[in-house]
């Protein structure tokens, strides 16, 4: 079953470990500027939202690529770039609605490759704001969380009557 990188901003604590491990792994340096993932923060209201390539089912980067350089890795589900074909026109950067494609230090385009199926950001995310799990599991988790809230409400109602 296909796994997905699933983001739950409610759990993000804003520590930016994801950014750092990403840049260390891919660029071999510590520099969040070139990380594929970034935590967007509204500090004064306490909102933290990690943003990264959504590995779309129907990727806009693929659609706009004039060279056909964007392809999907069937094993991991990651949308990847074939650098032999890529001419660096950056149309993908322009059109991605999530900012999922970034321009690297060398001027080449870079994007999340899900670390070949073992994303390091996920491994190091203690609050589990980032998870790499099967689609059906995501649904189950969401349903269970909703059911939990529902059951708490029910208990309160029962106690009140």
């Amino acid at each position: 079953m296909q796994k997905f990188l699933f983001i739950n901003p409610e759990k993000c604590s804003g520590c930016r470990i994801c950014e750092t491990v990403c840049s260390l792994h891919h660029e071999k340096v510590c520099n969040p500027t070139y990380a594929r993932i970034q935590v967007i923060k509204w500090e004064s209201s306490g909102l933290y939202i990690p943003m990264v390539c959504q590995q779309c089912e129907d990727p806009i980067c693929e659609t706009v690529c004039p060279m056909g350089a964007v392809f999907k890795d069937e094993n991991t589900g990651a949308i990847l770039i074939d650098y032999d074909l890529c001419v660096g026109c950056k149309l993908c950067v322009t059109h991605c609605p999530f900012g999922g494609v970034v321009i690297g230090k060398d001027g080449k385009i870079k994007k999340c490759d899900l670390c070949d199926g073992d994303p390091l950001c996920v491994k190091n995310c203690e609050p589990k704001a980032l998870q790499y799990i099967e689609g059906t599991t995501i649904n189950f988790h969401k349903r269970k969380a909703a059911a939990q809230r529902f059951s708490e409400l029910m208990q309160k109602l029962l106690a009140a009557t």
Partner: peptide, 21 residues
Amino acid sequence: GTLDVEFAYPDKLLDYCSEMN
């Protein structure tokens, strides 16, 4: 700042940081 901070052994460092985390 947007400058790199270069570490001596980035892979070992990353593994060890993951282990510690």
